[in-house]
């Protein structure tokens, strides 16, 4: 057993004080040590995007970061999207457009799309497709995911002033 390091992960505004080995990935720590199992782990080597979370405003693969590297940083996971019983516009759009079937990839897609639309509310459609090509979905064939994100993008931009 190698040494552990004491760190504080701020997930959705809440501090989690945990002690982890340096080799423990952020994805495993979020799930196993902090109990936030909404973040899914698919391939564990950065290809599938299921584990995508938002760190200091940027979407990142949590399987390609060690938890010690996220000490003190602001992490957002799928559990932080809804406000109480009110779903985030992206979550509603995924339901409305049948943007999921088995749901395994959904948290990763939601966090990817949230970060991209928050950073670039007026993102060009080509850039949006480029961003959404980051994650894998084995059920939907992607078209309904793209539809959902386009719909949510319009709603998140709000009425034009």
């Amino acid at each position: 057993m190698s040494d552990t390091v004491a760190i504080t992960l701020n997930i959705n505004g809440e501090d989690h004080r945990v002690s982890v080995e340096a080799r423990r990935t952020l994805a495993d720590t979020i799930r196993e040590d902090c109990g936030k199992t909404g973040t899914h782990i698919g391939c564990e080597h950065g290809v599938c995007g299921s584990c995508t979370v938002i760190i200091d405003g940027e979407p990142m693969r949590s399987c390609l970061m060690f938890a010690v590297q996220a000490d003190g940083r602001k992490i957002r996971t799928v559990e932080g999207l809804a406000k109480g019983d009110e779903l985030h516009p992206l979550q509603r759009a995924f339901i409305d457009n049948h943007g999921l079937q088995c749901g395994f990839c959904t948290p990763g897609f939601l966090m990817l799309a949230t970060a991209v639309l928050e950073k670039e509310p007026d993102i060009a459609d080509g850039d949006l497709l480029d961003a959404l090509s980051s994650n894998l979905c084995r059920c939907t064939g992607y078209q309904n995911i793209i539809k959902a994100v386009r719909q949510a993008a319009i709603e998140m931009r709000g009425p034009r002033k």
Binding site: G46, G49, T52, E58, P59, M60, R61, L64, M65, L112, V116, D130, A131, S133, S134, N135
Partner: peptide, 12 residues
Amino acid sequence: VHNIAHYPIRTR
């Protein structure tokens, strides 16, 4: 740059 892996890889 748009040919390098994917968006969340490029942020890191």
